[in-house]
Amino acid sequence: NKFNKELQWATWEILNLPNLNEEQVKAFIDSLRDDPSQSANLLAEAKKLNDAQA
């Protein structure tokens, strides 16, 4: 389904953001699992944090 694909994509993207530490990655992945419908928003937040920590 749509959420499953978005969840998989967001998870992959977050795992590959180079500037997030392990705790941050875990927190984003946990949030994705808690509410897959928020995957686009969570991915945007993760990318923003990744850029800020570059």
Rank of each mutant, 00 (worst) to 15 (best):
L42G: 01
D35K: 07
F3Q: 15
L17P: 00
L15G: 08
A10K: 03
A40T: 08
A27P: 02
Q24N: 02
E6P: 03
K47S: 05
N41R: 13
L17Y: 07
D34R: 10
E23K: 13
D34M: 13
D51E: 14
L43S: 03
F3I: 15
L17D: 00
E23F: 11
W12K: 06
L43E: 02
E45I: 09
P18V: 05
Q24Y: 02
A46D: 00
S37N: 07
L7D: 05
Q24W: 02
Q24I: 03
Q24R: 01
D35Q: 07
L7N: 02
D35R: 08
S37V: 04
A27T: 11
L49W: 05
S37E: 04
N50H: 03
L43A: 06
A52G: 09
Q53T: 07
K26N: 13
N4Q: 15
E13D: 04
E6Y: 13
A54F: 10
A54Q: 13
Q24A: 03
N50I: 01
D51W: 09
N41T: 13
N16S: 08
D34W: 13
L42D: 01
A27Y: 09
L49R: 04
Q24V: 04
L49Y: 04
A46T: 01
L49I: 10
T11M: 12
I29E: 02
K2V: 06
D30S: 13
A52Y: 09
P18W: 05
S39H: 15
S31D: 06
S31Y: 12
D34Y: 11
D30P: 00
A44K: 10
L20R: 00
N19F: 08
S37P: 04
A52R: 10
L15A: 08
L17Q: 04
V25L: 05
N4S: 05
K2M: 14
A54I: 09
W9Y: 13
S37H: 06
R33E: 13
K5A: 05
N21Q: 10
A52S: 08
K26F: 06
T11I: 14
R33P: 02
L20S: 00
Q53H: 06
E22L: 11
F3G: 15
E22P: 12
D30W: 05
L43V: 15
N50P: 00
E6F: 14
S39N: 13
D34V: 10
A40K: 12
D35V: 05
D30G: 11
L15F: 04
E23H: 10
N21P: 03
L15M: 12
F28H: 01
I14D: 02
A54G: 11
A44F: 11
A44L: 12
L42I: 12
L42V: 12
N19T: 03
K2T: 05
T11E: 05
E45Q: 11
F28P: 00
N19M: 10
N16T: 07
S37F: 09
A10D: 03
F3Y: 05
W12G: 14
F3W: 04
P36A: 05
A40P: 06
N1T: 03
E13W: 09
N41P: 07
N19R: 03
E23D: 10
D51T: 08
N41S: 14
A27E: 11
A27K: 11
E22T: 09
Q8K: 15
P36R: 02
D30K: 12
Q38A: 07
K2E: 15
L43D: 00
E22R: 12
E45W: 14
V25S: 06
W12N: 14
E23V: 12
N19A: 09
L20T: 00
W12M: 08
P36D: 02
K26R: 10
K48G: 07
Q8N: 04
K47Q: 12
N41I: 11
N16F: 04
D34N: 12
D35N: 11
F3H: 15
N21S: 05
S39K: 05
Q24M: 04
L49P: 00
L17K: 01
P18T: 11
N1A: 02
L20H: 00
N50G: 03
V25T: 08
E45G: 05
F3T: 15
W12Y: 11
L42Q: 05
F28V: 02
L42K: 05
A10E: 02
Q24D: 04
E23S: 12
L32D: 00
D35Y: 06
Q8M: 08
K2W: 15
I14E: 02
D35G: 03
N19H: 13
I29Q: 03
E23Y: 10
